[in-house]
């Protein structure tokens, strides 16, 4: 199930998950989002705007409850960033959902947004990247977390940052698997496999 809180190109996420073999519903309904086998939290744009959108549909409660009960969750791009403790944009800090340790800040790089296909370095124990090999994924963001806990996959643009994290039943990617062609589809299929 894909959570619709007014952010992002939901159609792409929906289609990419369907292609990877899922039965997909897009919903803004908290009860359905809570009950889903797996929940995708997408997100593009500003951190504060995404958090406001999430709060608007009760998404904060849904995410925290799912994490507390071990129900699988996949955050994508800003949908990943809001899982951290807070985001700092233009010197203003916005509280995040704090289900992952760490903060999100503007990357130090000569050209931002970090836009395009970059390499990632997954650790051998990663489930998301199982069988994916050394592929590139599509990123478009200016902010990221540089530290967290769990199975952490890093990438680099100006500085190293968290490209993906897997911690218990919480998974998240800073890149867009739904826009990353074949490797993105393989990663989504790996995540769907964990829901079975």
């Amino acid at each position: 199930m894909v959570l619709d809180y007014g952010s992002g190109n939901l159609r792409s996420a929906e289609r990419a998950l369907a292609r990877a073999g899922a039965e997909v519903t897009v919903t803004a309904d908290a009860a359905s989002a809570l009950a889903a086998d797996g929940l995708v939290v997408p997100g593009v744009g500003a951190y504060a705007a995404c958090m406001a959108g999430l709060l608007g549909v009760g998404g904060d409660v849904v995410v925290r409850k799912r994490v507390a009960t071990g129900a699988p969750l996949l955050g994508i791009c800003v949908g990943m960033q809001v899982l951290f403790e807070r985001g700092e944009e233009h010197g203003v800090a916005t509280a995040g959902l704090a289900v992952l340790p760490g903060t999100v800040h503007r990357l130090t790089a000569p050209v931002l947004p970090h836009m395009g296909w970059n390499t990632v370095a997954p650790p051998p124990e990663s489930v998301l990247f199982r069988g994916v090999g050394s592929e590139r994924f599509y990123f478009v963001h200016s902010y990221a977390a540089t530290r967290t806990e769990g199975v952490v996959t890093t990438a680099e643009h100006g500085e190293p940052f968290v490209a993906a994290v897997e911690r218990g039943t919480v998974s998240a990617t800073q890149f867009h698997p739904e826009k990353s062609g074949g490797p993105g589809a393989a990663l989504l299929a790996n995540w769907l496999e964990t829901l079975r």
Binding site: R11, S12, R15, A16, R19, Y138, K179, S180, G181, G184
Partner: peptide, 11 residues
């Protein structure tokens, strides 16, 4: 655009 986004998974 709709038809393309259903079949092509790049930006």
């Amino acid at each position: 655009v709709r038809r393309t986004a259903e079949q092509v998974f790049i930006p």
